[in-house]
Structures are given as C-alpha cells and as structure tokens.
Amino acid sequence: MEAHSSEIFVIGLTVFFLACIIGYYVVWSVTPALHSPLMGVTNAISSVIIVGAILAAGPLGYETSKIFGIIAVVLASVNIFGGFIVTYRMLSMFKKKPKKQKKA
C-alpha cells in the first residue's frame, strides 16, 4: 500500500501541472499550418497508454485482466502505427518542392 501513498500522488500532481505548462508553451509555438499533423502526433503519443496495457498483458496464464491488457495493446498499437504514419504522410507533403524546370 505504501506504493500508492499520498506522497506519490503529490509527486504525480507536481509532474502533471509542470507538464501542462510545458504543453501550453510548446503547443502555442506550433505553426497553425501544422495543426493537423499536431493532432496526428498527439494522437500517436497519447497511445503511450500501451505501457499500462503491456503491464496488464504481461503475466503468464490467462486471467480476465490479461485479456483486457491484450485487447488494449492491439488498440493502442493501431493508434501508434496509424498516428505516426499518417503524421509522416502529412509532414512529407510540407516538404519544400524542388523548383520545377522553367520551360515557359
């Protein structure tokens, strides 16, 4: 039970508020043209929830919690791969294009 004492909660809360502030400044610096890729990438990283899913799916044997864990791993993986790839696709469109040959 010590593992979840109020002390740990307060540390978590500290981390939470500091992260919110970092998020605030970092996101305001994102150029509006890239707001769609921003959604793609935040969507991909929010699937870091897979960490919890892996812990649940970890033990040998088949208990209810493990099944839930495996389902969550599948769902989060769809998101991780899907999110990063679709962001990659969007961002590669924003590459500077090589100047077209001037034949006019």
Binding site: Y24, S46, L55
Partner: peptide, 21 residues
Amino acid sequence: TLSNNLLIITGALVGASGAIL
C-alpha cells in the same frame, strides 16, 4: 492510477494541445 509519470506527462501534453486547439 499506475503512478506512471510518463503517462501523466504525455497525457498532460496531449490534453493541453487539444484544449488550446
């Protein structure tokens, strides 16, 4: 729930991002 700082930080980043948008 899991006392996992990585999830807390990432969640806060994403939450802030969506809120600002």
